[in-house]
Design a binder for these strands. Sequence first.
DNA 1: TCGGGTTTGGTACTCCGTACCCTACCGTGA
DNA 2: TCACGGTAGGGTACGGAGTACCAAACCCGA
Lengths: 240, 240
Amino acid sequence: MPPTDVAERLRAAAFELFAEQGYDATTVDHIAERAGVGRSTFFRVFRAKEDVIFPDHEQVLARIEERFAAASTEHSLLAVTDASRLVLRSFLADADRARERYALTRAVPSLRQREIASMQQYQRAFREFIRSWMDETEGSAALTDLRAELMAAAVVTAHNHVLRHWLRDPGASLDDVEAAFEEAMGEVRARFAAPRAAAAPVTVVVAGASDPDTVAEQVRRALREGGPDQSRRSGLSASP
Amino acid sequence: MPPTDVAERLRAAAFELFAEQGYDATTVDHIAERAGVGRSTFFRVFRAKEDVIFPDHEQVLARIEERFAAASTEHSLLAVTDASRLVLRSFLADADRARERYALTRAVPSLRQREIASMQQYQRAFREFIRSWMDETEGSAALTDLRAELMAAAVVTAHNHVLRHWLRDPGASLDDVEAAFEEAMGEVRARFAAPRAAAAPVTVVVAGASDPDTVAEQVRRALREGGPDQSRRSGLSASP
DNA sequence: TCGGGTTTGGTACTCCGTACCCTACCGTGA
DNA sequence: TCACGGTAGGGTACGGAGTACCAAACCCGA
């Protein structure tokens, strides 16, 4: 019972007991007892038994929101990718806890539900931001909504994919994770080309060619000829 | 106490009470009492209070699984789209219940979690199927996994998008929903079309440039210099 | 040392979910 | 007709999560 914070003591006790006896077999009374506090204190610090496991997504979410508010000039997909990277790093920050949590969420259905729901929160925030950013462009409202949602889902899915692979692989370095993240987000960007904007990044997709000079030539033509409407006909798209 | 099934009597009583007093204010005893059965019977028919609200996804999922097992020749995205259409129609089948359920899931967080989790089950099944179908093609295993997951997520997202819009719009006809579904899935297919057989698509992402010649030059250099590792340094990536 | 506010522990309660037992009903066979 | 076994349903008891509320301890300045 060192002078650490009560919340941290409770969390440590909880993770210990969950590892020893499993989640369901551990009662809140056990946790409070081992932490040396009363049961009331537990529920004062954490709203529920599940809360002791999960990190404070609210804080990360708040940082993301304010970042979104500021980054109005940036391309929306890049901004969302940045936000997602932020989330990923919040997991990487304490790898041990993340791994223990992962083991628990795999074993206990209610915890897995909770995990999924928290990810959905991010997806919702991403969708809202992308949609607000897209409002300026033309297009059917319903279709715009769908596109925003697809983008948000893709980013979150890619994030989770990278995160899960890291959690399963005990030997992966942080650099490996970051590289995998960038590759995954590249995969996302490749499919959700950006609509046009002033200083927006340029995404070009060229199918069926591998020679650099040929590709470069196709890219130039694509950029000159305009929008992404030809992409389906010619297998080639450019969206400046 | 008509000769209806016990489960149906319970469900009817539950929806009535939820509409009258809300979900949390309604206890299982209330439901059992109004249905004219004992509390034990409720928990024998439904494993939990939440279960009385949600449809039998297991049955739909089972049908999907066997359909997947049979449709080995079809393109995976089309097969998954078909499966998703099946799910959508299972909701359309009893529209009233679906709408009541929607109102409840919006109001009660725990129900929303459950709803999301059940959708994730479909996404998992889709991902597994797409992944098994993709195995025959070449490509990095990790990237294949990611692509399968992105596809599955896109299909489920599009499905949910259409479903939610229908649930919110009381005047939409079934034909409208079907049309919206096909349009949404077309949007998905446009982004996750199958790669060409011979040469994989080349994706180049260039940030911060708009002049075609400059971009083309950067693309040529990126393709010559190799893989996606430089993406962060130069703000430029190429993945052949 | 006193008084007011905050923190913490304790108690009692509701409700969900489980385990277990008991009864009523049903058909079958002697 | 009676005995019997199986099964669906009802009742009771219990453990644990979460809530409400109260009492005690602690802190801190006056």
